[in-house]
Write a protein that binds this DNA or RNA. Structure first.
Length: 356
DNA sequence: AATACGGGGGG
DNA sequence: CCCCCAGTATT
């Protein structure tokens, strides 16, 4: 096939071998470890995922350890990484492989795709790195590198673009070293062909880069962005028993953000409200029927604004002292065992009655 | 084809 | 403030 293909791959891999970072999942082909690293790294920077990878390997050295854990333990270890469906699916897939497949991972792209939480990218990564199957990965880095070098203006988040880039990557892949090629092109995007101000003059592909030739490096890749941010108003009811020994948590069971994580009892309102409006609400009426309320103090006058990529949460914490026994209390000493969103973790770590 | 799903870091 | 990050599942 095209000579350009071989040359591209050889140049890329040559660059990679000289410039790759020493990461714990490199030089490593145990499917369990590669799979774990790939799930952690979905939409996540290496620097952010690294400590999580170490903690997971330490807590769960094998897939059986992970499979035998509770979902709560897995979510707790995942706390702070975001996209918590990854953790839930990680646990589901660990159980599937440990108990239904005798601890053995599927060994082909096609079969890997059947695993929960494993999509096109992750199946390609595992198949190529662990099993030498020439299936090309296309992540954010690959979109950027290929769109620039080949001057492709098709939107990367359109159906057409997704197919076009996958096909191109598949043509370019080094069929003898697919895992190395895949990691090389991602590393090149992450370390050299970066989103802002890449050093094109020093680039090994400067001579062939279509975007550089046409002076449109900073225009690529093209991405159709839509992202309307929703504003929500959260009122957390932070219960404290009289002796300040216990509080109350609830698990979010609904679809939506933070599924299966814990938080304080929540009353969501259409806008920012004062205590009177909470007091008059149906939700609070139900709440106060089972929880004896003594005194209410607003912890933060100005709402805490917790920003997710698609929602802004305006949050007030209402501290409620309770004279009677709290229904299903959580001892303060055990508060930190529960997986909670960062918004809640931040409150717990700064609210003095919850210290030690 | 669009949308939901976290949180952090860089310019 | 904006964009992006070793994407996937659901609608």
């Amino acid at each position: 096939m095209p000579k350009i293909t071989t040359s591209f791959s050889n140049s890329l891999i040559f660059w990679y071998l000289q410039n790759k970072r020493d990461l714990p999942w490199r030089n490593e082909i145990q499917p369990y470890r590669i799979w774990l690293s790939e799930i952690i790294l979905q939409q996540t920077r290496v620097a952010q995922g690294l400590p999580y990878y170490s903690r997971f390997i330490k807590a769960f050295p094998t897939i059986f350890d992970l499979a035998n854990a509770t979902e709560e333990q897995v979510l707790k270890l995942w706390q702070g990484l975001g996209y918590y469906s990854r953790a839930r699916n990680l646990h589901i897939t660990a159980k599937e492989i440990a108990f239904q497949r005798d601890g053995k991972f599927p060994e082909t792209y096609k079969d890997l795709l059947t695993l929960k939480g494993v999509g096109d990218y992750t199946a390609s990564a595992i198949a190529s790195i662990c099993f030498n199957e020439p299936t090309a990965v296309v992540d954010g880095n690959v979109y950027r590198v290929l769109s620039r070098i080949f001057g492709i203006e098709t939107a990367i988040n359109s159906g057409k673009g997704i197919k076009e880039f996958k096909l191109l990557a598949q043509e370019l892949i080094d069929r003898d070293r697919p895992g190395t090629f895949n990691q090389a092109i991602m590393e090149f995007g992450a370390r050299f062909c970066v989103p802002q101000n890449p050093k094109c003059t020093e680039c090994i592909f400067a001579n062939q880069c279509e975007a550089l030739r046409q002076r449109k490096v900073n225009m690529l890749p093209v991405k159709i962005r839509k992202q309307k941010i929703k504003e929500r108003h959260f009122n957390y009811l932070v219960m404290i028993s009289e002796e300040e020994q216990a509080t109350l948590l609830k698990q979010r069971k609904d679809k939506g953000i933070w599924q299966n994580l814990y938080e304080f009892p929540l009353i969501e309102t259409a806008s920012e409200v004062s205590w009177n409006e909470i007091n008059d609400s149906e939700a609070f009426k139900n709440f106060s029927e089972v929880n004896k309320i003594e005194e209410v103090i607003l912890y933060n006058e100005k709402p805490v604004i917790h920003k997710l990529s698609h929602q802004h949460l305006y949050t007030k914490f209402w501290v409620i002292k309770s004279s009677a026994q709290i229904e299903k209390p959580v001892p303060i000493s055990e508060l930190r065992k529960y997986p909670v969103p960062v918004l809640i973790e931040n409150f717990i770590s700064e609210f003095s009655p919850f210290q030690n």
